[in-house]
Nucleic acid binder design. Sequence first.
DNA 1: GTTATTGTGGAGGCATACCTCCGCTATTGC
DNA 2: GCAATAGCGGAGGTATGCCTCCACAATAAC
Lengths: 197, 197
Amino acid sequence: MTERTITGTGSADVVRRPHRADARRNFDALLVAAREAFAQHGTGASLEDIARRAGVGIGTLYRNFPTRQDLFDAVYVDDVEGLRREAEKVAGLPPWEALVTWLRRFVGYVATKAAISEALNRESAMFRSCRDIMYGAGEPLFARAQEAGDARADISFDDVLRLVGGITGASFVDDEQRERVLGIALDGVRARPAGAV
Amino acid sequence: MTERTITGTGSADVVRRPHRADARRNFDALLVAAREAFAQHGTGASLEDIARRAGVGIGTLYRNFPTRQDLFDAVYVDDVEGLRREAEKVAGLPPWEALVTWLRRFVGYVATKAAISEALNRESAMFRSCRDIMYGAGEPLFARAQEAGDARADISFDDVLRLVGGITGASFVDDEQRERVLGIALDGVRARPAGAV
DNA sequence: GTTATTGTGGAGGCATACCTCCGCTATTGC
DNA sequence: GCAATAGCGGAGGTATGCCTCCACAATAAC
């Protein structure tokens, strides 16, 4: 009963968008509210609160998203899809710049921050599929940066993603500091000219 | 009513340890259970579950720690105290090694991981005091590494702490990966021989 | 051993979240 | 316009957590 269908092409049709106009409005409002709530309170955000924020009854929430997971997935898949699109956008940039730009998007973009690290580990068809998409998007950028001699050769893309994921989940005084700290981390990813211990 | 006494000498007497023998046993069992629960479920761990784990009634928990904050503080103060002691231990090492060793302890030691990032921001007398202790312990190590030319001069200790704090909160496949990722981050903190963009 | 006191633990009241169910309403197709 | 129907929303049952209160038990003092 835990299995769900994920479209192979990567489109986010995990749950069906309703046909009727009012239903579609509610569906969208729920997604917006859920994204906000998950970003604010993490995976455990109150579903009743989400329904309230969306201005719909709790019953409507459950009809559209029978389980918490269904709702979370819908938001999460959107985020991951967004990251995939971002990867395409930066494809034209020089290797290192492309990687850095994408990773910055990664930190800024993802609303489901609180669950990122969980998602990297979680064993479920859905999470695995999203992780694949994320890797499919980012790993080539990293490999290209490595081949160009810009990124260290002795680490994996998974390492980088978890490093940046950690920063995504951390808290900062302001955006400026977050950028600075991300910069420090990226310096660690960057290849050294010579070799220092 | 939110004010609490923190002993200036740094001992963790935020709440009084009881005098009677059985009471002391329960007190200690609660601390152990709470450390475990907070590490596992974050700040929001169920107090009733903690009492159960400790094998005491919920009433006993509340008598010793009237609020959730009191219980959390007791665990947190212990952790911070531990970090302070670690800082003294590494004082004899060379600058960079001392900093790195301490930061590694930071990642491994702290049981109240989930609240670290929150604690760095939270405005409360208790958190502020602990942050001061933490800074008092780590900042000199960082300053020394900067003066020795080992750590970058253009970043602050706060930046480093948040960077490492993020890694502390992230999840990893195994300890080896966490060490490796921390290594990447520390490379970013390290001063460069020349100057590369 | 006896008594005074300190501490115990869980029953129970309150709040909140989850989820189901069904009488009512809005939309759509004609 | 009108019927058919897809969708609505919240009442309410269940579970769980928070916290208080007090009859009872363990300990300490003598």
